[in-house]
Design a protein around this nucleic acid. Sequence first.
DNA 1: CATGAATGAGGTTTCATTCAT
DNA 2: GATGAATGAAACCTCATTCAT
Lengths: 223, 223, 223, 223
Amino acid sequence: MRVFARFSYSHSDHKIVARKPPTKPRKNASQQRSRATVDALIEATARILVKEGFEKASTNRIAEVAGVSVGSLYQYFPSKEAIVAAVIGRHNEEVMGLVRTALAEVAGLPIDKAVRKLVAVAIEAHRINPKLHRVLAEQIPRTGQLAEVEAFNREVHTLVRTYLESRRNEMRKVDIDLAAFICVSAIESVAHNTVLNHAEMLTEKMVKVLVDETTRMVVGYLR
Amino acid sequence: MRVFARFSYSHSDHKIVARKPPTKPRKNASQQRSRATVDALIEATARILVKEGFEKASTNRIAEVAGVSVGSLYQYFPSKEAIVAAVIGRHNEEVMGLVRTALAEVAGLPIDKAVRKLVAVAIEAHRINPKLHRVLAEQIPRTGQLAEVEAFNREVHTLVRTYLESRRNEMRKVDIDLAAFICVSAIESVAHNTVLNHAEMLTEKMVKVLVDETTRMVVGYLR
Amino acid sequence: MRVFARFSYSHSDHKIVARKPPTKPRKNASQQRSRATVDALIEATARILVKEGFEKASTNRIAEVAGVSVGSLYQYFPSKEAIVAAVIGRHNEEVMGLVRTALAEVAGLPIDKAVRKLVAVAIEAHRINPKLHRVLAEQIPRTGQLAEVEAFNREVHTLVRTYLESRRNEMRKVDIDLAAFICVSAIESVAHNTVLNHAEMLTEKMVKVLVDETTRMVVGYLR
Amino acid sequence: MRVFARFSYSHSDHKIVARKPPTKPRKNASQQRSRATVDALIEATARILVKEGFEKASTNRIAEVAGVSVGSLYQYFPSKEAIVAAVIGRHNEEVMGLVRTALAEVAGLPIDKAVRKLVAVAIEAHRINPKLHRVLAEQIPRTGQLAEVEAFNREVHTLVRTYLESRRNEMRKVDIDLAAFICVSAIESVAHNTVLNHAEMLTEKMVKVLVDETTRMVVGYLR
DNA sequence: CATGAATGAGGTTTCATTCAT
DNA sequence: GATGAATGAAACCTCATTCAT
């Protein structure tokens, strides 16, 4: 659900455009050993990001935590940005897994069931790793990952839009794109604020109530 | 409207808690000359943040753009964080002006009029300086301004909650805090996504439609 | 007693000789007000040196503690070194007062009485302000005060030497300069180590014992 | 012989206690290349300290003189203080070598022979590198090396005390600790003043005379 | 004379990145 | 491929000193 939506605003019109360091992985890491190293590096980065914050995530520290040398890091990632980008990518994939599954399951369901499911999955997605989510969200503009996040957002929008179209007969007359935009925004926002601001004291009871209420709002809006 | 709501999630449980640099201004800058310098510094910082991004906002560069020496910067701000905090503070005040005024005006109005106003002001607030808003939002966790932003959020929540209480007779039976949370989230989110993702191609027509739709959603939810 | 003796070793053969900043007071400060300001500055410097250490003794801080502006500081002292030099001068005068008085009193006395007096006065001199003494001692090479300290040392040496000459009949056959050097070294050293290393737990009883022992050593040496 | 005795007075009751920068070496530098770099850095620091003074010993300058980059300096030393501490450590070791050897050799000897040896070694220790000795002595309080120097002093005191105890039958009745304190102070002081104030014009003849006289004083005192 | 805002050289330290081994 | 020592630009910040008011 536009998980990183709020960061998709382009920074590209900076007067001084710094040459962005390369961000594509250097090799396919097809070999097993390589793959393990790459994973260790990504995992180490994620862990540092979560536990110590972005400032502490130096390449040397990442390599150290991953148990390899800096040299090896640069064997697989051309720059620091690239490794952060990989972490973003991995997190995105996890989130996308949830979202795509949910949207597939929802296909034939009536609007109220469907929305409830989407709200639930949005909260679930934010709960995968709230802190990582947050740190990554902050770092996206720096890592030149805007494009990928936009793509992600567009995909969500399209999926929701497609679903809504298939249910047009249950809905009042409304521009489908607009409705999708508003629904996605509202759902994502409630999920985001719920999880990021109240993560620690979130009971299942409270989650249920929030899902109920948000569903009511969105369904009420669509019908 | 919880303008920075999504950044109030606490980072305080980092394993390694870095000593936050001081963020309170060093002098009151009551004299005229001082005041001008301080203003120039804040203004320069805002400009750099918007045009060149956070990375370029080094203290030397800020001083240079402000047309003063680094020494002067440190005469008034004890750290780099402090000056970013000041920019946040200034921006917050502007936003707060709008929000408080709107909430005052709304006091006696029925829910539909009130919500429309709130939606409109949320969008307006985001349009004051969308790019600055965005960069600041990203930097808030770094500047130790979370507390102030939380206070801001709480104030908005309380004001909205108070308004809703006064209109309980127009509303269905619902927990007021919950309703306030959901409304504020939804409104803020639409405003945020609207402005930050589509700032350049935003016509007044579109804004009107968005206000209409969001109002419909929120009002439908409350009644 | 060669109170700063160990710092009189010349640094003047540094390969790169920095232009020493001027150290002579700018004006005679004859007026009353001026005198008060100068005193306040010297006193503030001494206090900071003692309580916060040399690193904290910036000119701005000195002026602040003295309750005047930095500008005023520079009205009376041409450089930071100059004000530290003034503090050294003031402390030296105090010490010198004690030492000269003691040497005058001692003039007609036999060696054992005289030495006892000198040892006592050496300890007393170190106890005037042990911490200030220590900090100043460290700073002397930096302040270009070596010459003055040398003069101070020479004066002490000469006074002691003169005394010893007058008592040659009580002494064994020995080079007077050599004897003076050794006596002054020994006395000063005991006083220095006693006070600086054990200042806090120094009882009058202990001082007496130390005076007894040192006197015994020196007198035994001379006879 | 309490080579740095006069600097062991504690500064720890400063009102404002600055966080001391870390002073322990960062790596063991077991590899060859590392070792060479570390040595070059320590050597460069010592050289600058001696030839240009403490003020000129900036980290950049040290690195430059050592022929490495600043980065390398910080690879091995966590702060500027740490490298000065290392220089102190190295110098201390040299001095300690002499002192320990002398005290071992002296073990079975009668007091007069032993004292002569100790006086001689004290002067010898000061002559290893008088200028370095001096600069380091001044810098010890700044480098948080007080503890180590105290330990050094205590060791010397204990060794001397132990020797004196073994020779009690040759001595008059006197508190052994007190006697050790006074002897060590006197010997160290003569050595210090002799070498630091007259280093350049010190003939072997003069040294011999000084050793004779100091020995006479100390032995006379003990018997 | 006094004030204190302003200056800016220079100090310490970090960290992404390279490259000899 | 892997290692980790080395690099050095650049960031933050201090403080002695000046000078307009």
